[in-house]
Design a protein around this nucleic acid. Structure first.
Length: 638
RNA sequence: GCCCCUAUAGUUAAAUGGCAUAACACAUCCAUGGUAAGGAUGAGUUUCAAGUUCGAUUCUUGAUGGGGGCACCA
C-alpha cells in the first residue's frame, strides 16, 4: 500500500505495488506520454521500476537535464548495438554521457571510417524504428563475468571484475542485445527519437592510461528535438568560424611553419597587438608596485638541477650544448632567473614585499600531439611575476594580485571569471604545518575577495597551493589563464634570504603569478572571443583611409598622416579599385574605422566614417575626429 | 608520444598513371567611382625521400607538417 509523495507536495495512495508509468498516467495523460525516467527518493530509476513502499518520486521528461542525459545515454547504447550488428566481433567497453552528447569506446582491429559512421547512423535510426523494448535484469556478478567472457567481451568482463564480489550487477536489454549498465534507461529504443548525429571517431586509451592499448572512440551528439540538434550544430559552426588560426591568417597577424612547429612567426600586425597588450600590462603593473626585470633565456644546467626542474621537468626542456661541451638549458620557466636577481645584494624585511615582473619568453618541448595554434605552443611569453614576501603578507598580496587580474580581464572584455583553488597534492615538498599556513592564507584571500570559487582537491603544485583564474568567453567556453601559486620550496633551494627585524636571516615566501598566463595563448582567446573584431584600443590596424577616386589621393594621404600622428594605426588605400570594392575588402579584414574622402570631405575638411558592422555614415570635421579617436585610443587605465 | 584523417598557386578548393584547373588575392592596362566584389590581360602550383612503372601530383612505404581526439599541460 505505497503512498507516493509528488514534488508539488500532493500524495497518491495505491493499493498495490506500482510502476512509474502508472503513476505518470494517474497524474496526467500528457505526462505519461512525455515521461522518460523518474527518481525515487532522489535515486534515478526506470519508469517500470516497481514501487513497493512509501516514497517521494519525481518524473522527468526531456525538458529536465536528467531526461536529456538519459536520452544521450540511450543513444550511446544503440550506437554500441548498431556497431555490433554491423561489425560482428567488435568489443564494447564504456559509453558515457558527456557535455552535449556521448561517446562509446570500442575495441576492433580495423578502424572506423567516415562512411562507417554514416552506416552506423542509419542502423541506429533503424533500431529506433524497431522500437525494441528495454528491460533490466539483475545478475550475480560471476554469472555476468562468464556471460561476457563467453561472448568474447573481454573488456566488459574486466569492468565487472572490478566490482566488489558481493554485489549484483544490472544488465540492460534492448530486445536481445544487452550491456552491463547502471541505468536508468528509457522504456524502449523508440523513445530516443532521431535527433542525434555521430560527429567524429578518434583514438582513446583503455581506462584513460597511455600505457594501455588504444581503443576507437565514436563521439555523437543527441537531443530531444530537431531544433536543439540544429542549434547545437550551428554553434559548432560558429566556433569554427572564429577559429583564431583561420582569422589570424585572414587578418595577417601570424603564421606557423614546419621549421619550428609550435612557435609563432608574428607578422607586423600581430606583433603590434602583442606589444599593445604588453605595454598596457606594464602600465598596470607599474601602478601596482611591480619592478620589471629580465633574465637570460639560457642558463647552465646546474642551476636547473639545483632548482629541481631538471629532475621534475627535464623531459620538457630544450638544451643547448656549446662547442666546448657545456650543457645549457633554455628556460621553461622564469622563476630560477628571478630568484637570482633577488639574491643580488642583501635584502631587508623593509624591502618586502618585493614584486618583480618579467615578460619572459620560455620554451617547453610539448608533446607533438598537443600543439594547437596559439593555444598550445612550444615557445611563449609569460606575463610573469614573482613576489618575495613574509608569511604574514601572503593574504594581502594575493588579494591585490586577484584584483589586478580581474581588472585586466575586465578591460579586455572578460567579466565572467571563476577561481579554482588547488590544495596540497600527494607528492609534495615541505612540512604539513607550512602547508596549513599557506593554504589558509590563500583561502583567506579568496574569501575576502568574495568571488565565486571551486576547490580542486589535491591539484596544487608540488611546491605549494595555487589559485587558477578561469574566464568564460562570448560563446561560453572556459579558458584557464591566470595563475597564482604560493611557493614554499624554491627560495630555500636557491638560497634566497632576507634580514629580519631581529637581525636573523630568513627565507622569504615566493608567490608566482601570471596574468594572462601566455601572451600567445591569450591573443588566441581574444581573437576567438571577439571573432576577430578586436576593441579599438588594441586593434593593430585601427583605420583605413579610402579616397573615393584617385582625384582625392593627396587629401587622403594628408588625412592618413594626421591620423597616424595622433597615434592611431592607420593606412591609406590608393589601389586601383572602386569604393565599393575597398569597403568590402577592408570590412572583411575587420578594420574598425573606414575613413572615406571625396569631394565633399575635401571641400569641408572633414572625413566620413564608416564603422565596422554598420552601414551608417558619419561625417566629422577632421580636427574633431582626431581629438575624439585619440582619446578612445588610450588604454583603459583607471 | 599514441590512434584516425590529411598535404595541389599567396588563400580556398577541383582534377588526373601521360600539357594540372577554377575562384579570390597579386601585377599591368582600361574605366574615375559616394558606402560590401566594374572590365580586360598576365605571372604563379602538386611537402620531402624511397619504391612500383616506359612514365607518379595520382599507387605503395617512410619522414615531416597540419587537423580531430587520447594522453600530457610542470
Amino acid at each position: 500500500m505505497p503512498t507516493i509523495k509528488l514534488p508539488d507536495g500532493k500524495s497518491l495512495s495505491f493499493s498495490r505495488k506500482i510502476t512509474g508509468f502508472e503513476i505518470a498516467k494517474k497524474i496526467s495523460k500528457s505526462l505519461s506520454k512525455q515521461a522518460l525516467i523518474m527518481s525515487v527518493d532522489n535515486q534515478l530509476k526506470d519508469l517500470d521500476h516497481l514501487i513497493e513502499n512509501d516514497c517521494s518520486i519525481k518524473i522527468f521528461t526531456s525538458k529536465d537535464s536528467e531526461g536529456l542525459e538519459t536520452i544521450r545515454h540511450d543513444t550511446a547504447h544503440i550506437l554500441a548495438m548498431a556497431v555490433q550488428e554491423l561489425f560482428p566481433g567488435t568489443q564494447v567497453t564504456i559509453g558515457p554521457v558527456i557535455e552535449n552528447g556521448f561517446y562509446y569506446d570500442f575495441a576492433r582491429k580495423e578502424s572506423f571510417t567516415q562512411e562507417d559512421l554514416n552506416k552506423i547512423e542509419i542502423k541506429m535510426k533503424e533500431i529506433v524504428d524497431r522500437n525494441e523494448p528495454t528491460f533490466k535484469e539483475v545478475w550475480k556478478r560471476n554469472k555476468a563475468i562468464s556471460h561476457f567472457k563467453d561472448k568474447g567481451e573481454i573488456y566488459k568482463a574486466k569492468i565487472i571484475e572490478d566490482i566488489p564480489e558481493s554485489e549484483d550487477v544490472s544488465i540492460y536489454f534492448h530486445g536481445k542485445w544487452n550491456d552491463l549498465c547502471r541505468g536508468p534507461h528509457l522504456s524502449s529504443t523508440g523513445k530516443i527519437g532521431k535527433y542525434f548525429k555521430l560527429t567524429k571517431v578518434s583514438g582513446a586509451y583503455w581506462r584513460g592510461d597511455s600505457n594501455n592499448e588504444m581503443l576507437q572512440r565514436i563521439y555523437g551528439t543527441s537531443w530531444s528535438n530537431q531544433k536543439d540538434l540544429d542549434d547545437y550544430l550551428k554553434r559548432i559552426e560558429e566556433a569554427e568560424k572564429r577559429d583564431h588560426r583561420k582569422l589570424g591568417k585572414e587578418m595577417d597577424l601570424f603564421h606557423f611553419r614546419e621549421d619550428s612547429p609550435g612557435s609563432v612567426f608574428w607578422h607586423e600586425k600581430g606583433w603590434n597587438l602583442f606589444q599593445k597588450l604588453i605595454n598596457y600590462m606594464r602600465a598596470k603593473q607599474k601602478r601596482a608596485g611591480y619592478k620589471e626585470i629580465n633574465t637570460p633565456e639560457i642558463l647552465d644546467k646546474s642551476l636547473w638541477e639545483k632548482s629541481g626542474h631538471w629532475e621534475k621537468f627535464g623531459e620538457h626542456m630544450y638544451t643547448s650544448t656549446t662547442p666546448d661541451e657545456k650543457v645549457f638549458a633554455i628556460k621553461p620557466m622564469n622563476c630560477p632567473g628571478c630568484v637570482q636577481v633577488f639574491n643580488q645584494g642583501l635584502k631587508s624585511y623593509r624591502d618586502l614585499p618585493l614584486r618583480m615582473s618579467e615578460f619572459g619568453k620560455v620554451h617547453r618541448y610539448e608533446p607533438s600531439g598537443s600543439l594547437h595554434g596559439l593555444l598550445r605552443v612550444r615557445a611563449f611569453t609569460q606575463d610573469d611575476a614573482h613576489i618575495f614576501c613574509t608569511e604574514d603578507q601572503i593574504t594581502n598580496e594575493c588579494l591585490s594580485i586577484t584584483n589586478l587580474i580581474l581588472e585586466i580581464y575586465k578591460d579586455l572584455g572578460f567579466t565572467n571569471v571563476l577561481l579554482q583553488f588547488s590544495d596540497r597534492p600527494k607528492k609534495r615538498v615541505g612540512d604539513d604545518k607550512i602547508w596549513d599556513r599557506a593554504e589558509s592564507a590563500l583561502l583567506k584571500a579568496i574569501k575576502q575577495s568574495k568571488l565565486k570559487y571551486e576547490i580542486n582537491k589535491g591539484e596544487g603544485a608540488f611546491y605549494g597551493p595555487k589559485i587558477d583564474f578561469v574566464l568564460r568567453d562570448s560563446i561560453e567556453r572556459d579558458w584557464q589563464c591566470g595563475t597564482l601559486q604560493v611557493d614554499l620550496n624554491l627560495p630555500g633551494r636557491l638560497g634566497a634570504s632576507f634580514v629580519d627585524k631581529d637581525g636573523s636571516k630568513k627565507i622569504p615566501v615566493m608567490l608566482h603569478r601570471a596574468l594572462f598566463g601566455s601572451l600567445e595563448r591569450f591573443i588566441g582567446i581574444l581573437i576567438e572571443h571577439y571573432s576577430g573584431k578586436l576593441p579599438f584600443w588594441i586593434n593593430p590596424l585601427q583605420a583605413m583611409v579610402i579616397p573615393v577616386s584617385d582625384e582625392f589621393d593627396s587629401y587622403a594621404k594628408q588625412v592618413n598622416e594626421k591620423v597616424k600622428n595622433v597615434g592611431i594605426n592607420c593606412e591609406v588605400d590608393l589601389k586601383n579599385h572602386n569604393l565599393n570594392y575597398k569597403i568590402r575588402e577592408h570590412s572583411l579584414s575587420k578594420i574598425p574605422l573606414l575613413l572615406i574622402c571625396g569631394k565633399k570631405e575635401v571641400d569641408s575638411n572633414t572625413v566620413t566614417i564608416r564603422r565596422l558592422d554598420s552601414n551608417k555614415q558619419e561625417n566629422m570635421e577632421l580636427k574633431i575626429f582626431l581629438k575624439k579617436f585619440a582619446a578612445l585610443n588610450k588604454a583603459p587605465l583607471n
